[in-house]
Write a protein that binds this DNA or RNA. Sequence first.
RNA 1: GUGGGUGUAGCUCAGCCUGGUUAGAGCGUCAGGUUGUGGCCCUGAAGGCCGGGGGUUCAAGUCCCCUCACUCACCCCA
Length: 424
Amino acid sequence: MPSFQTSPGTRDIMPPEAARWRAFTDLFASVVEPAGFGFFIPPMFEDVGVFSRLGAATDVVTKEMYDFVDKGDRHVALRPEQTASICRAFAQHRPLAPWKVWYSGPNFRYEKPQAGRYRQFDQVGVEVLGSDDALLDAEVAALAWNFFALLGLRGVTLRVNSLGDAPDRAAYTEALRGHFASHSSGLAPETRETLERNPLRVLDSKRPADAAAIASAPRIGEFLCGDAREHFGRFLSGLDMLGVPYTVDDLLVRGLDYYRRSTFEFVATSLDGAQNAVGGGGRYDGLVEELGGPAAGGVGFAIGVDRTILACDAEQVFAAPAQVVDIFVVDTTGGEAAHAVVAELRAAGLSADRAFDGRSMKSQMKSADRSGARLAVIIGPDEAAAGTCTVRNLSDSEQTVVARSGLIARIGAILGSPDQRKTS
RNA sequence: GUGGGUGUAGCUCAGCCUGGUUAGAGCGUCAGGUUGUGGCCCUGAAGGCCGGGGGUUCAAGUCCCCUCACUCACCCCA
């Protein structure tokens, strides 16, 4: 065993898997940037108060925050998510509304790790601040939907619900508290604790004992005010217009306290187990104000990168891109020739690799094979003496001898120009 | 925070139940077969504090205790 290894809940993402992660983010950017979203990078840590607005009833805030006092006596926390930072940024900088941003990066929660749950986990997402329009909610949810489709995922479903405005949500919460209190004998002991802290969360319980009490519980629909009801209807018709399929689930409640009106969640049916929510979002009117900013509506979503990639594995889609090189240079004369040729090839816009440490020709050829190169340039004593190179096609084993001075031209003739290769 | 499973070579794992000489396999790596040529094949080599500590025993990879790590589930959530 090595002296050190990654801390619990963290991991190294090695090549070629890391290239897949980069492709994932690139694909996400290609979906949201044409829709007018600008890339935003918030700090990795902030004053703990920014995050405590997420909700005193949520474990994310009360138990799972990586918080500490820094050398200047500031109580700070590693971000557990990025929505709060973006709202804080809106309050701080007052950009022109609606402010549309996307983000990508790690978040931190001190949880016990398991499949699809890490202490450092990546999310990509978007947020729009300064608009109340329900059609925007639909557009935002549709962007996530389109992204899952572009990844090649087919087993992702969208569940939607409305939690109403703040008074609606509060009234519903009280109604639930009353309902479950009168049915508490039918609840699991752990659920009774949840009821104390956050009655809405009881609806999310998967414990069999709770099923009957949940089935008979009042529904949020009865508590929506006229505006919220109309907003929800417009959200749904906005999804219909875009051809995004969804199911309305009035038991869908989301973990963070700040959600108002529209909420939605993407579930990967290919992932069994508890960690199958690959994305979630909704509207969070009021959060900016809580952070000292103007009254501004907000809507957005976050997609869990780790989990979504697990779903891609399960569906065998969005494989890691192969990293290959155009040319592999084999040099059995000491390495100086390869040193020069590789540099020359790269300067000409070709990708090139080589072996080091004076390996045998057999070993170098094996490396050439593994590199995925289409061509090997071979320099042995004969070529060195004659001022030539042997160019070997690694797929059909045809090879020719060319003068060193004509190498680039010959390779260009075989492979085409870099631009042609990119588009082909 | 609570419970289950697993820690043996770079990787995947036998061996543990039923303790007994120098701890194995496949893959990978390196070298050779082929004194200048990759894939397929053959041969050989390198590579192990058997997670760590303590105990039982003439003897521990194997049995017991503790501990750490990983992993799965509860919980929570993306």
